[in-house]
Design a protein around this nucleic acid. Sequence first.
DNA 1: GGTTAAATAGTAGTATTACTATCATATTTT
DNA 2: AAAATATGATAGTAATACTACTATTTAACC
Lengths: 222, 222
Amino acid sequence: MNVSIQLKVKSFIRDPNDTDLGRKIIENSILLIDQLGFEAFTFKKLASIIDSTEASVYRYFENKHKLLIYLISWYWSWLEYRLNVEFLKVHKPEQKLDFFLKVITTPGNVDSEFKFVNGVALHRIVVSESPKAFLTKDVDADNKDGYFRSYKVLVHMISNVVLEVNSAYPYPTALVTTIIESAYNQQYFIDHFKTLSETRKKGDLEKFLSGILYGALNVKPS
Amino acid sequence: MNVSIQLKVKSFIRDPNDTDLGRKIIENSILLIDQLGFEAFTFKKLASIIDSTEASVYRYFENKHKLLIYLISWYWSWLEYRLNVEFLKVHKPEQKLDFFLKVITTPGNVDSEFKFVNGVALHRIVVSESPKAFLTKDVDADNKDGYFRSYKVLVHMISNVVLEVNSAYPYPTALVTTIIESAYNQQYFIDHFKTLSETRKKGDLEKFLSGILYGALNVKPS
DNA sequence: GGTTAAATAGTAGTATTACTATCATATTTT
DNA sequence: AAAATATGATAGTAATACTACTATTTAACC
């Protein structure tokens, strides 16, 4: 398989896909952000790992926030890609939604090694860091520049499936964003606040989210 | 009224409630974080506003993250206080949950001026910054130190009300955290991502969350 | 095949941030 | 009046988040 995820919106200065250094930046920034957390992550530390320099990294990304936006966007596009592949195989909207729930609650798959991207580490970054991509004072400017398009495309895609299940439901995108944000948030709570989530056992989180989704839509789960 | 919110867990070095400078730090840090966002907020900027020095602020809080934890904790304790007052007046659990939904979706109340705390600004901080209080590499150490107790107390209090409505529901705290996080997240989306939430009109967000809550519990809303 | 232009890598420097340490002074407590 | 405490003033440091400039490699053209 040699499909590549091409992001339509450029939060980069120079496309990291095009060069060796660019790919090393992506590959190792995922590992390093996962290790250190976004706050302690710096371009200098990254550069020393990939035997390059701070200035070289800056030629690809204006700052580490733009890099985070790139990584998170890549994740949502990758998710959308996997859903699209699956959606060709199944037809009932309920089956599609179940697969969607499965994908967002699973830390990583066998097929998650996508070229130079460590999907498991990237999933953890989404769990721990993704709200930081939009919880900034630059959010409106970033939004205007289209930096959250991957997420929006994904949300609208699932919203349409939600409407196939219940076309009268008035809040489809609010429901989908709630499900997505809750999925990742609960994964964080399971790891760090034992008393704040009962979805500890395998499959529980999926069941919990399924109950919310079909409960809100007022239909029985498939 | 002269009730004061006393936080049981000290994320401070010296209690800001005790002194004039301490209260000025709280009052103005709320206004300044609201204005600048947490990233651009610094103790130096704060000190210059309150005609003090960086070193003096550092005598109250070890760093700005501990200050954020203090402010957010104060907010949850304030919320818990208001809910407790109301819960004495009503008796049906559904009424309690409805009041809970109302409080978390309302940006500020008439009674929200609580001494030197601007409740409206603090509400905005919770919307925009609260996940940053726990999405750090220090989360486990901070949790061990009890820094998230106010939030946990609130969640467990509401979870118990949820169980009054449906004692067989298996995920009460997961449901309550999902409702809370979604409430604040949707408020952010309404302001910044118009296409990602349909809950634009007054009361819509409450209705949306009510649908999720009672839908998951599989009972009709009151 | 050699000259020139463009792309990329590497070096060095700056302003700001996030602190820490020290000392002086004002205020409060005993 | 002495002692303890709170605040202020000043200075200094290591790290961060960049920017500007120089060196080298690669590509493009005649």
